[in-house]
Design a protein around this nucleic acid. Structure first.
Length: 201
DNA sequence: TATTCGATGTGCT
DNA sequence: GCACATCGAATAC
C-alpha cells in the first residue's frame, strides 16, 4: 500500500473554479481499515457556486441539507438523489460562501478488487467509477460522511505520486436543467474513465 | 447501437 | 405534490 498523505485543507479555501482544475490528476483516498485502502485519480469534476448558480443546492438560501455547503472548505457534502444514489462533494472557499465541487469520475488506482465487490455486476473496469454515484458505490461512500471534514474520517485528497501531463477540457455540466449554460465541468482529455458524454469532443 | 423509462428518498412549495 | 447534480435494464430500431 502506498503511503498517501493528505494535502492541506487550505487547498480548498480558495476560488472554486481554480480548485476544480487543480483537483484533476490528484488522488482521492479512502481507508476502510488498517489493511484496506481504496484510491482513485480524479479525472472529472463539476463546480457549484452558491452565489450565482441556480443549479447549486445552496443558491441564495441557507436551509436544510444545503447548510453544509456554507461550512468551510474541506468539508464533505454527500447528498441522496433519485431515491437510490449518493453524490460526493467537497466544499470550497471560506465558511459562509456556499460553494462545492462534485466528484464525477475517478480512475481506479488501488483496491480495485474491493471496488468490484461493492459493484459486483460491473465487468468493464472503465464502468466502475465513471459517474458520481458509481464512484460513491465503489468507494462505499454514503451519508455518514456528510458534514465531516476531509482527512478526519479515513477519506482525503492526496497529491499524485505519478507526475504526468494532461490537458484539461471544459464543458457544460451534465444532468441539470437550471444553470445548465455554465461551463463548470472539468475533465482530463481522452481519459477513458471520464463519463461518456457528447460534451467530451 | 440509441433512446426511453422505472426505481424511489428527501426537501421544498 | 413534484422536482431532483443518476444508473442500468428494457425497449425500440
Amino acid at each position: 500500500m502506498k503511503a498517501y498523505k493528505p494535502i492541506s485543507i487550505d487547498f480548498f479555501k480558495k476560488d472554486t473554479i481554480k480548485v476544480s482544475k487543480e483537483l484533476l490528476g490528484k488522488v482521492i483516498v479512502r481507508k476502510i481499515d488498517n489493511k484496506t485502502c481504496l484510491a482513485g485519480k480524479i479525472v472529472e469534476v463539476e463546480a457549484y457556486i452558491g452565489e450565482h448558480d441556480p443549479a447549486c443546492h445552496a443558491f441564495q438560501k441557507v436551509s436544510g441539507r444545503s447548510s453544509v455547503l456554507y461550512e468551510e472548505g474541506g468539508t464533505i457534502y454527500v447528498y441522496f438523489i433519485y431515491g437510490n444514489y449518493y453524490c460526493f462533494n467537497i466544499v470550497t472557499e471560506n465558511k459562509g460562501i456556499g460553494c462545492a465541487i462534485l466528484i464525477r469520475a475517478v480512475e481506479p488506482i488501488e483496491g480495485i478488487d474491493i471496488m468490484r465487490e461493492f459493484r459486483p455486476k460491473i465487468k468493464n473496469i472503465h464502468d466502475l467509477t465513471n459517474g458520481p454515484s458509481k464512484f460513491c458505490i465503489a468507494f462505499d461512500i454514503d451519508k455518514k460522511f456528510n458534514n465531516q471534514k476531509l482527512s478526519e474520517n479515513g477519506i482525503f485528497v492526496s497529491d499524485s505520486q505519478i507526475k504526468e501531463k494532461f490537458e484539461i477540457k471544459t464543458s457544460k455540466r451534465i444532468g441539470i436543467v437550471k444553470g445548465a449554460d455554465f461551463q463548470y465541468r472539468f475533465f482530463i482529455k481522452d481519459n477513458p474513465y471520464v463519463t461518456k458524454h457528447k460534451f467530451n469532443k
